[in-house]
């Protein structure tokens, strides 16, 4: 299976692990990630304003690129996924916005939101299947107590994201279980880590992140996994005393391709 892949700015820099292990794991699972040519940064956050067009064009170019290749568009960074999915939704539901965009993009041909957008986790669940992953595990993570941290961008707004139950999600827990580990369920896994406020008010972000880690630890977590570079940064910066890793790294480890990449 071939899919179009949008890595995003951070994955080529500070979050290389998230990207690298995504590639390696996908390969084992029979999925080829075809990186979109000349992709541009999604902008990090979706601007909700109705009258913003320019800030959304980079997402639309990526969407259209995948659409032209008749491939689903897969992202792995929570932020990219959120921005691209919300932009695509706006293209599907807001015709005035779509008209404006298509006038801007006249040279590239029109786009109406046809491309299917998958987060890498959704790809694992819906296109690969957790049962298939389970069969491919070579290093079982049995006995490890792992807490999934979703943050906000994967799940909300639920009306657009439609990934899972936004208040009691299970997609990452199901992944953890398919890798042989125990999934730690804790209520703060969908509360915000502080996001970009850590730039201006690191203490405010710290307060949120500490509460999340504390909640995971009280429920027995030995490790936290996430799909978002900013979440990982905030959770680590607040002084986490348990490891915070990208879910792709955990996946690669279980699939036996982690050492491979390090070597």
């Amino acid at each position: 299976m071939k899919v179009s892949y949008f890595p995003g700015c951070t994955l080529k820099n500070k979050a290389k692990d998230l990207d690298m292990y995504a590639y390696k794991s996908a390969e084992v699972l029979g999925v080829t990630l075809e990186e979109i040519e000349n992709w541009q940064c999604c902008g990090g956050v979706f601007t909700t304003a109705n009258d913003e067009v320019a800030t959304k064009l980079s997402s639309i170019r990526a969407l259209k690129y995948a659409g032209d290749k008749e491939q689903p568009l897969v992202t792995v960074c929570s932020a990219c996924h959120n921005v691209i999915k919300q932009t695509n939704h706006a293209m599907q539901t807001n015709s005035a916005f779509a008209d404006k965009v298509n006038r801007y993009m006249a040279a590239d041909g029109s786009y109406k939101g046809e491309t299917e957008v998958y987060h890498y986790l959704e790809m694992l669940r819906d296109l690969v299947g957790f049962d298939v992953i389970k069969e491919k595990v070579v290093n079982t993570l049995k006995g490890k107590k792992i807490a999934a941290y979703y943050g906000c961008l994967l799940l909300r707004p639920n009306k657009v994201m439609r990934m899972d139950d936004p208040e009691n999600p299970t997609i990452m827990e199901d992944l953890i279980k398919s890798l042989g580990a125990d999934a730690v369920v804790y209520a703060k896994r969908n509360e915000c880590c502080g996001g970009y406020i850590s730039l201006e008010s690191p203490d405010a972000a710290k307060k949120n992140s500490i509460a999340i880690i504390e909640n995971a630890k009280v429920n027995g977590a030995q490790m936290i996994i996430t799909a978002c570079p900013l979440c990982k940064y905030n959770l680590e910066k607040c002084g986490a005393d348990i490891p915070v890793v990208y879910f792709t790294e955990l996946l690669a480890e279980a699939l036996g391709v982690k050492e491979d990449t390090n070597a």
């Binding site: 700015c9 820099n13 902008g43 990090g44 932020a79």
Partner: peptide, 18 residues
Amino acid sequence: AVVDADTPQQLLVSAFRK
């Protein structure tokens, strides 16, 4: 003044967009 060695690009991009 506010970045460190680990600051992800995503943080800066988001902050500027907001």
